[in-house]
Write a protein that binds this DNA or RNA. Structure first.
Length: 387
DNA sequence: TCTGGGGTCCTAGGACCC
DNA sequence: TCTGGGGTCCTAGGACCC
């Protein structure tokens, strides 16, 4: 999708069309960044991940809106249904990006351009937003092709032409090459993807490691995966929040962490998963970010277990006597919830599983904030925004 | 200019085991 | 007496993507 969040907002409110529209984070502007900017706003230099304050300086007369993720998620699901009219082989790569294997369905539409036209028209008619489609023999090249013809574009790279298509482009346009790798490559005189493809592997290994070098070379030569696999089980679930101002009092911080833990545990159970690893994340006033992890003896989906682990981790985070800017809870080492009672603590498990199920049912009917663990104080000032 | 939030993947050291 | 070579798990950190 082109400028997805901004486009969805314009579709919802046509008076926004043609205006420089900037969709930002959840916090009251102070510390938030740009999530999405319309092409009109981009003309002023506004980009995603840019602090809102800076965007306001660049584009003072722009329309600034808060991000409503739930709305974009619903639009994303409707768009997925449209894509399914072209082929059942779909892999959603993110909320606004999908990979489609159209090998078997090209003939139904005539050719790939007609198929792309069908998708673009359907999305424009139903959602009133534009998208860009790249076609290639693998996902990576298709993505770069789409990036090259945004917005509202279509570009197809013929099989065999992948390497020549990429060659003149800046190394920064290769997926996986971010600001750090770009600078490192440019410092050694490698400005284009074509030049990158000729760098000896040992040279790249020294800079980017074994895997990094191999994947860079493969990508630079236009090779990539063409596998389309539906979403599998998530690898981690996390919630984090940045305070409106830095805090030093852990009596205020801890309840916020517990609240994030509740959010994580709720998401975990909604997915039918349990976690074996709990990580507490803190970012201090100087932006230094630390994480402290604990691996549990048994995987869990219960708030009480996650909170107990966090309580063990607090002293590590508190050791640094610095004000805290952000806290987060991260659950990993996930597995499908066996729904088996463990031999130990059978009674405790049964009790807490019943409690969890009841809580989740109430939340399903009345919203997340209908129920909280007693020690999670309702502190609207520091509470993360709910859907 | 003063830096969000949700993810994935990779690296590297140390513990521990055979 | 001054010491190998895996393999796996745990932990912390960082690059990158949208």
């Amino acid at each position: 999708m082109d400028a997805f969040f901004a486009s969805v907002e314009s579709a919802r409110d046509p008076s926004l069309r043609g205006k420089p529209l900037i969709v930002g984070g959840n916090l009251d502007d102070l510390r938030s960044v740009v999530s999405s900017a319309s092409y009109e706003a981009r003309r002023y230099g506004v980009r995603s991940a840019m602090p809102i304050a800076q965007a306001k300086r660049l584009c003072p007369h722009g329309v600034f809106m808060r991000c409503s993720r739930g709305v974009y998620g619903e639009a994303s699901r409707r768009i997925q249904e449209i894509l399914e009219t072209a082929t059942p082989h779909i892999q959603m790569a993110s909320i606004d990006e999908a990979n489609l294997d159209i090998t078997g369905s090209i003939h139904l539409f005539g050719d790939e351009e007609k198929l792309a036209r069908h998708i673009k028209n359907a999305i424009l008619e139903q959602e009133r937003i534009t998208c860009t489609i790249g076609v290639a023999s693998n996902k990576m090249v298709a993505k770069v092709a789409a990036n090259e013809c945004k917005p509202d574009g279509f570009l197809s790279i013929a099989p065999g032409a992948e390497r020549d298509f990429l060659a003149p482009l800046s190394v920064g346009k290769l997926p996986g090459v971010g600001p750090h790798a770009k600078e490192a490559l440019e410092n050694m005189g490698v400005m284009t993807i074509g030049r990158l493809a000729t760098v000896p592997e040992p040279t790249l290994k020294r800079m980017f490691g074994e895997q990094g070098a191999a994947s860079l070379l493969r990508a630079a030569c236009g090779m990539g995966s063409d596998e389309i696999t539906p979403q599998d089980q998530p690898k981690s679930i996390s919630r984090e929040t940045t305070f409106p101002e830095d805090l030093s009092d852990w009596r205020v911080i801890e309840p916020v962490v517990f609240r994030l833990a509740e959010h994580c545990a709720y998401a975990l159970r909604s997915e039918g998963l349990e976690a074996k690893r709990v990580t507490l994340k803190t970012r201090y006033a100087d932006f230094q970010t630390k994480s402290f992890a604990k691996t549990l003896s048994d995987p869990t989906a219960l708030d009480v277990d996650i909170m107990a682990a966090l309580r063990e981790l607090f002293p590590k985070a508190q050791a640094r006597r610095a004000r805290v800017r952000l806290v987060g809870v991260h659950l990993s080492a996930l597995s499908w919830n066996q729904h088996q009672m463990r031999l130990f603590n059978r009674e405790k498990m049964e009790k807490w599983e019943r409690v969890s199920q009841t809580v989740d049912t109430v939340r399903g009917k009345l919203g997340f904030d209908a129920v909280h663990v007693g020690r999670v104080l309702p502190d609207s000032k520091h509470a993360p925004k709910d859907k």
